[in-house]
Write a protein that binds this DNA or RNA. Structure first.
Length: 298
RNA sequence: GGUACCAUAGCUCAGUUGGUAGAGCAACGGACUGAAAAUCCGUGUGUCCCUGGUUCGAUUCCAGGUGGUACCA
């Protein structure tokens, strides 16, 4: 049976290097599952693999979209399944690595089918949120979809917006679209998680941010200052620099915040992945053990 | 060497007229179904420098010690 070797872990843990080694070991290619590395304009701040690394192993889903495109986890699911099907014709194993938990889940378990939301409706709801406050949206949700109202986090505007968008556009409650079931996949999924001591991880993150700055992160961000409202640029490493360009904070402070926000991001990833009981955890330097583990499962 | 001041959370510091303590930042824990590097929720984590004294009780008062800072030599 064909398999997908999924390598996960927080930002800065060492996924890229290990994945290349694993892909070489199995003579295969890599699918990136990173919601920001898909944007071709964002290179330094998203820590995409170097040209040298990209030349060693064929990568997919890196720089294949533009920051001006609309993109989401469901689109990622569809596109990856397509790519994976064609890769599996050539390779028994394919590696997938990245830190975007929701994107990974979309590929491994699938997400329920929902309609694409009309941009006008989304804008109107955001407008309503700004003008009338979250309480107004809550009330509307309570009427349109009482089940979601009881289930979702009512303090989180994005959750309420999502449920409302779907309920309004389809005329059916958002909760009625949720099946709470996994989509079957015709390949085996093997999940490897990477972990290190927290201090060590944070040290690596801090160093990597300094390195990004040396490589020209500030210029890269400045280039897209005009596009700072785009969701694709609501990203650690860019949003902090935009604030410094606006004169709200110093550049030095921005770099400090990038480090802190990257650490916070890493923590959120750790929380997300630790819930997945299928993941087997290793230290990134235990390459032989990891390869042995994969071979025992395929 | 002398004098003065200081020593409280990871850091910077506040505070307790004697009843074991708090703020900012940092940190920690969690949620997550199409914007997810997003968004949201929760948590003080402490030999109050050490030893002895006074006291029912000392982080607080007293003495000595240790470390630091400033000034005088």
């Amino acid at each position: 049976m064909k398999s997908l070797l999924v390598i996960v872990g927080p930002t800065g843990i060492g996924k890229t290097d290990l994945s290349i080694d694993i892909a070489k070991e199995f003579g295969t290619e890599i699918i990136s599952s990173d919601s920001r590395q898909v944007y071709k304009e964002l290179k330094i701040g998203t820590a995409v693999p170097t040209d040298e690394q990209l030349n060693q192993v064929q990568h997919h889903f890196i720089g294949n979209k533009s920051i001006y495109d609309y993109y989401n986890a469901s689109m990622f699911e569809v596109e990856v399944l397509e790519t994976l099907a064609s890769l599996h014709k050539k390779f028994d194993q394919v590696v997938m690595t990245g830190g975007s938990g929701m994107y990974i889940n979309a590929v491994c378990d699938g997400i329920d089918d929902l309609p694409t939301i009309d941009q006008k409706l989304r804008d109107d709801l955001i407008d309503k949120l700004e003008k009338e406050g979250i309480a107004s949206l809550r009330l509307q949700l309570k009427m349109l979809d009482p089940e979601s109202y009881h289930k979702i986090d009512l303090k989180n505007p994005k959750r309420i917006l999502k449920a409302l968008e779907v309920s309004i556009q389809t005329g059916k409650p958002y909760s009625s679209f949720l099946t709470e079931s996994k989509k079957p996949r015709d390949f085996k999924i093997i999940k490897v998680g990477l972990q290190r001591e927290r201090d060590e991880l944070y040290h690596r993150i801090n160093l990597r941010v300094d390195q990004m700055v040396n490589e020209g992160l500030i210029d890269e961000a400045r280039q897209f200052f005009k596009d700072r409202h785009l969701n694709s640029l609501n990203t650690v490493g860019y949003k902090e620099l935009f604030e410094s360009f606006e004169g709200l904070i110093t550049e030095e402070k921005a770099v400090e915040l990038i480090k802190r926000n990257s650490r916070h991001y890493a923590k959120r990833q750790i929380s997300w992945f630790s819930r997945d009981k299928d993941i087997v955890w290793f230290h990134p330097e235990r390459k032989e053990e990891i390869i042995g583990f994969i071979k025992s499962r395929i």
